[in-house]
């Protein structure tokens, strides 16, 4: 799983039937120190995350399994909201 921050939502009126009713979130990937890393991606939401939440998400086959109806074409799904994160200091 990876860590990211919700920076927005995406609205689609026309989408695949199996994704109807599922919220789409714009996610900025973060590194272990919560610094932005990489380009934003769009993910399906399984936990009702909101703007500015730090979340974790998974890609691949597991993304589809994370939604209620597992037969869907999701390739990134938000699976949890992070309350706190501890990372040890970088060794010099």
């Amino acid at each position: 799983m990876k860590i990211g921050k919700v920076i927005g939502t995406v609205v689609c009126n026309q989408k695949v039937d199996s994704l109807i009713g599922i919220k789409l979130l714009l996610i900025q990937p973060l590194n272990e120190y919560l610094k932005e890393e990489g380009t934003p991606v769009v993910a399906c939401d399984a936990v009702q995350a909101g703007l500015n939440d730090i979340v974790f998400y998974e890609g691949g086959r597991e993304a589809a399994l994370g939604l209620i109806n597992w037969f869907n074409p999701s390739d990134l799904t938000v699976m949890g909201i992070i309350d706190s994160l501890y990372t040890e200091e970088k060794k010099k």
């Binding site: 860590i3 399984a46 009702q48 992070i82 309350d83 994160l85 501890y86």
Partner: peptide
């Protein structure tokens, strides 16, 4: 292991 994460709302 370099850190841990606490999460309440999750699957």
């Amino acid at each position: 292991v370099i850190g841990q994460v606490v999460s309440t709302i999750k699957l």
